[in-house]
Amino acid sequence: MNLLQKGIQAMKEQKLDEAAKYLTEAIDKHPEEPLAYINFGNLLLKMNEFDRAERFFEKAVKLDETAATAYYGLGSVFYEKGMFSKAQGFFETAHQKGLQSGDVFFMIGMCLYRQEQPKLALPYLQRAAELEPEDVDARFQYGLALAQIGQVDLAHDVFKKVLELKEDHSDAHYNLGVVCLYHDDPQKALAHFERALEIQPDHILAGHGKGKVEEMLKEEDKKDNR
């Protein structure tokens, strides 16, 4: 393996100091190679050093304006900074430059969702889920976007699929509980809220939902006993 490959491998193994050493050597040896800067930027992202990461991705773009993954990296920097509109622009540029992975569709969708535009986010999140059918996060966020625009039955099916992929997904259970309440099925809703709390005892929303349903069921029992 060359220095760049050694750096990427070390990063995959979470050996960040070792990765930094190899990537620094790769940049010193081949200062005109954009991939070394891109991967060093990715390493800095992992270390939450966003300003430094931005500089490395910008250097890569200067060396190669067609480097789609450098634009994706810049999108990731601004997404982490909470600058979702700017991040969206970079992710869209990455897509225009040829990046067709589920990740880029997912991130464009998430930028739109974070800007409170779930209807616009929906096709991107749907596409991400289609391209990466085992990606739990993409499918879950797709379900949330559906729920946000009132497509409750479709959201229900998506959350069920999330649980097929990851049975202990507390947020999927919580959202299924909400859907069950929407369909006037408090017993099923309670079961989902309780399961969410088994998985994540500090799930505040599930705790609130459980309390609400229990109060509802108590009121129904009082009416039945009159």
Rank of each mutant, 00 (worst) to 15 (best):
L99M: 15
G82F: 08
K223I: 01
F50Q: 15
C180L: 04
I108T: 09
H156F: 11
E219H: 07
L197E: 14
G73V: 01
Y182E: 12
Y37W: 10
G109K: 05
P133Y: 06
A196C: 07
S170E: 15
M110C: 05
G89S: 10
F140T: 03
L112A: 04
P34Q: 06
D171E: 06
L3N: 07
D221P: 03
H208I: 15
K223D: 02
H208A: 15
E219R: 11
E49M: 11
E214Q: 12
A172M: 05
G109P: 04
G7M: 08
C111S: 06
M1L: 03
G75Q: 08
A155W: 01
F105V: 03
D168G: 05
L35D: 10
V61M: 02
P186A: 10
L205C: 10
F90C: 01
L43S: 06
P34K: 10
V162F: 00
F56Y: 14
E116P: 03
E132F: 09
F57G: 10
I204R: 14
L120I: 01
A26P: 13
K29C: 04
I204G: 10
R114F: 04
L35N: 11
A189P: 00
Y124R: 00
A172I: 08
A60V: 04
P201Y: 10
R127P: 02
L205Y: 07
I38D: 04
V162D: 00
Y124C: 00
K46Q: 15
Y113G: 00
E32A: 14
M1R: 05
K59Q: 14
K12C: 12
P201R: 13
D171G: 05
Y71Q: 12
H95S: 04
A10C: 02
V213P: 06
A26C: 01
G41E: 11
L45D: 09
L112M: 08
G177N: 05
K59G: 11
A196Y: 04
N2R: 10
N42H: 13
L190A: 09
E214M: 14
F91P: 14
A196V: 07
L45F: 09
K210A: 13
E219G: 01
A19D: 02
K188P: 00
L176M: 08
E32R: 07
L217I: 15
K210I: 12
G73W: 00
L205W: 09
K166N: 11
I149T: 03
E32K: 15
L112S: 06
A138M: 09
L131H: 11
V136A: 10
L131K: 15
K97F: 09
M1A: 14
F56P: 02
A19N: 12
N42F: 08
E116Y: 00
A94E: 00
E132A: 12
A60D: 10
G109R: 09
P201H: 11
Q126G: 11
L165C: 06
N42I: 00
P123A: 08
S76Q: 00
G89L: 05
D28F: 08
L63G: 03
A121H: 01
P123L: 06
Y124M: 04
V77I: 07
L217E: 15
M83W: 04
